[in-house]
Simulated assay, not measured.
Amino acid sequence: MKNLLVATLCVVTSITFSQEKETNLWTSNRPDGHAPISIMGDHIHHKGELMFSYRYMTMDMRHLRQDTYDATNADAHANYMVSPQNMTMNMHMLSIMYALSNKLTLMAMSNYLKNDMDLQMRNGNEFSTNTSGLGDISVSALYSIFNKNRKELHAHLGIYIPTGSIEKKGMLPMSMGNEVQLPYTMQTGTGSFGAKLGLTYLGQCKKFSWGHQLTGIININDNEQDYKFGNRYNFNNWFAAKAGNNLSISVRLEAVVMVEIDGSSSLLNPMMVSTADTKNSGGTYLNSGFGLNYLATNGNLDGLRFATEISTPFFQNLNGIQLKQNYNLTFGMQYAFH
């Protein structure tokens, strides 16, 4: 064991010192130098670099699914008084990245969410609920393990701070004019501290680039309502090709595993609506994405990047009965100070 530790230390030391002399490094300063805009923490920066990002993301969910099969309102109404019909989640996200050194980049992100859901009662009457507010804040560190021969590997370590609300309420047809607690999916926060762990591997050649990213978001503690959202694990793989000096086109494949909510809120009646029953949470998704990246390289806009991506699931295995994901659309703008 001791010999293995010594050997590992020697390898790491050799890589660290050899890369300082390496000139053929992976770089983000090209149109395909960033991952598709929906991926966070995909790259690091050189010492002293600062980058601001804005993203607008919309997720559309509609029609019911139980396990891997389509379901109907009648299936939901067999166990619940209310069935969801569709939901739209819109998010505005701001982030900042700053490189303390060529090895260490810090990142902070905050977001504002707006959730809208349409629902149907057993008697056929329909109604809507909506919430909005700040989400949880994350602070992360990205550490470069190596960068040479146009290959780069970095680790991601972050924490989530529960600044979002888990107390959003709404007035429902059956609440007799009173505002009541809304289900888990309508809340803007988790109420729990969380950790994010990840590894990202990047590669480039003259005309194209690729990447692989494995991340896990782990909710650490039960919140004040005695539950915590399930952990989430993502494995992203993408390929991007330059289409000129300023534009790149990307394709992406993603596997997502979302664990069921642990515990439950005493403020919710799990027999009222399917979204208030924690067994109808979590699942496995396989998604495909198509994106564009445009990087301005001249004049006053030098360093400004515009990007968009649309992704759709081609496989969904959902726990219990839930709304299917229809599509995710992301627009983004990033500006780097070199």
Rank of each mutant, 00 (worst) to 15 (best):
S83K: 07
N236A: 13
S14H: 10
C10L: 11
R30Y: 03
N130G: 11
L50V: 10
N221A: 02
G282P: 12
S274L: 09
T297K: 15
N219R: 07
S248R: 08
L142W: 02
S192M: 04
N147K: 06
L113D: 00
Q19I: 03
N245K: 15
T330A: 12
S83I: 06
L286P: 01
N111C: 08
L4T: 11
E309Y: 04
N237P: 03
M1I: 11
M89L: 14
G177Y: 04
V180Y: 04
L214R: 06
S209T: 08
Q213K: 07
G48E: 11
N149C: 03
Q181R: 11
I37L: 05
R55T: 12
Q225G: 03
F239G: 01
F208V: 01
H154G: 11
L100W: 10
K324V: 00
Y294S: 08
I217T: 12
K207D: 14
N147V: 08
N319V: 09
S53A: 08
I159P: 06
L286R: 09
E260V: 12
W26D: 06
G263R: 09
T23F: 03
L5I: 12
N178K: 15
N219V: 02
H43I: 06
S128D: 13
A296L: 11
L267N: 15
Q120M: 10
N300L: 12
T23H: 09
E126K: 13
N328V: 12
N79K: 11
T27S: 15
K196V: 13
S101I: 09
G282H: 08
R62M: 06
G191A: 00
A71R: 09
M107Q: 13
I249K: 04
H63K: 11
V257I: 13
D32S: 10
L247H: 01
H156G: 00
S175M: 08
Q181I: 04
G170C: 04
A141R: 08
S264T: 09
V257R: 14
D70M: 05
K169V: 07
N90H: 05
V273E: 10
G194A: 15
M271A: 07
S140C: 02
L119R: 03
G164R: 08
G320A: 13
T68M: 10
I321L: 05
P162Q: 08
Y335Q: 01
S274W: 01
S128P: 00
P270G: 07
N223F: 06
N328R: 12
P173R: 03
L172T: 11
N236F: 10
D222W: 01
N130T: 01
N287R: 14
T8L: 15
Q85K: 09
S95K: 00
M174N: 07
I145K: 02
I166N: 12
P36N: 13
G41Y: 05
R122G: 10
Y98F: 11
E254G: 02
L304R: 05
K169T: 14
I44M: 12
C205P: 00
N246P: 00
N149S: 07
I37W: 02
I310G: 09
Y98T: 05
N102W: 01
S128R: 04
G33V: 05
E22F: 10
N231M: 05
A108E: 09
L182Y: 02
N178Y: 14
N223Y: 04
L134C: 03
V139D: 05
I161R: 03
K206G: 03
A296Y: 14
S101W: 04
G133P: 07
N317W: 05
S83V: 05
I218A: 06
M174E: 07
F239I: 09
D67M: 06
S14C: 09
